[in-house]
Amino acid sequence: MEPRERGPGMGDAMEGTDLLQVELDRFTGPMDLLLHLIRQQDIDVFDIPIRRITDQFLTATEWIRAANLDTAGEFLEMAATLIGIKARMLLPRPEAEEDEDPRAELVRRLLEYEQIREVAHRLERAEADRARRRTKGWVEERPGPRPEDVPLETTWEEVFKAALGVELVEPVDRHHRVTPRTVSMDRKVTLILERLSDAPDGIAFRSLVTPFDDPMHGVMTLLAGLELGRRREIRLRQSAPFQELWMYLRPGERESS
């Protein structure tokens, strides 16, 4: 009730406004306030004293016009509806048409709203009961699509970087062009076998590529490695995807890897 949590620094006027604010914040909207007024005074919903309720509603929402602009429109809309009903009540209406009571729609809305409030309370209780039971572990976000379901979108630069471990050099402006020597796979095959002949513990793919610092050498070395693997001259090993690729000479024949 008392808005004391703001501390003692607040002025009296401010505090007064806060009190009203707190009061009205209890209501989720004009329907809630109207329901409250009717229940509080034990008013018969089928015979709402519209003049009294309208006056009370207007008094309760008076401050809104100045204070809270966000919800003001909604409360004022209801105030207008009430005033409209009040005005129509003053007009003589034909006895025959019973369902012409200007309050009928308001009554219908109030009954429906009250029912919804009751459902909301039940939902709240159901939610609380459910919250007392927990799953064995709760994963907030469901896993995304499996990698194999995602269409592969990649650039050559990414392939060079990720698979071949070669940093690309920024192309530089050259004043003259030198035709690069073609890199042949045969030369790479020879290179791999040479290096492997005195490396019984195998060699890392990266060590074959790094000295050249050129994507094309990386590609040809990889192809040569694959070719040698196909010929069953060497074994290729990788501890995990994207990890270093190791090459070993196959000592004898038919050694299963």
């Binding site: 009717i38 034990d42 089928f46 109030l110």
Partner: peptide, 10 residues
């Protein structure tokens, strides 16, 4: 659902 307003019966 108990609907207080309607069940007031006056």
């Amino acid at each position: 659902l108990p609907v207080v307003l309607r069940d007031r019966e006056v």
